[in-house]
Amino acid sequence: MSYLVEATGLVKRFGDFTAVDGVDFGVRPGEAFGFLGPNGAGKSSTMRMIGAVSPVTEGELTVLGRDPAVDGPAIRARLGVVPQEDNLDEELSIYENLVIYGRYFGLPRKVIDPRIDELLDFAQLEERRHSRVEPLSGGMKRRLTIARGLINQPELLLLDEPTTGLDPQARHLLWDRLYRLKQQGVTLIITTHYMDEAEQLCDRLVIMDKGKIAAEGSPRELIDRYSSREVLELRFEVGGQDSYLEELESLASRIEALPDRVLLYTDDADETAAAVHAAGIEPEYTVSRRSTLEDVFLRLTGRRLID
């Protein structure tokens, strides 16, 4: 079997509302697989089905070769889960949180204790071992939640928006830790609405929107397939951009007019900038950059990832 997780026509409904609307994907052993999408896309709903805590409404899902509806406990025994919202016991210490979780997996204390030493080292929480969780920073709590998810040495780690709400430094630290896990052979499934996170961490990803998968591939492939190599961003004085749109359209392979700026898709942004200038158009400022997954998302859905 080549997939660790495989879904075909996977559907999740809450009453009349369809949160996940027939998605297909496969996650290979050892890779970092991403779900990139805006709020409400159905990422968490999908993750919870993979985590064997949320029943599948329709379609097929196998996780680690098993059916979550039948073998939920056996699947969960081999998974690590980092939920979107930290659900640590804030009254307890870091250490106690880890012990209790390890015991939930049925691990004996003599296995748990050395593992906690390793995990606290990994999560850089050693000095805080006996601190209560409540006063810890968001980044520390997140790292603790990840450490907790690793207490059973899972083959597959599910991370639901691992870095949302963290400052850039805390995010980079987390990315580094996730990268190390991947090198150790742990398969990662990550949801995010940050395109830079998806680009940094994921070997392959699907772009999700309104419960459906809009595209699938590696970050590079997706950018190549759905966007140009480079992008020129133009910002005009308030209300000034509309009159230029028609002319700009003729200068690029494709343009995208956002409320606050215009994006010109092109193979060479500097050349296009020169052409814009030559046409006598004077934006307030211009930025040339490479295409990102954000551009792919915009192309596919007509909307931005984060509003």
Binding site: G51, A74, R76, P83, Y104
Partner: peptide, 14 residues
């Protein structure tokens, strides 16, 4: 409040 039951249900416990 603390959602510790949600955390427990992500383990083999039912």
């Amino acid at each position: 409040w603390r959602k510790t039951y949600h955390a427990a249900l992500a383990t083999p416990l039912d």
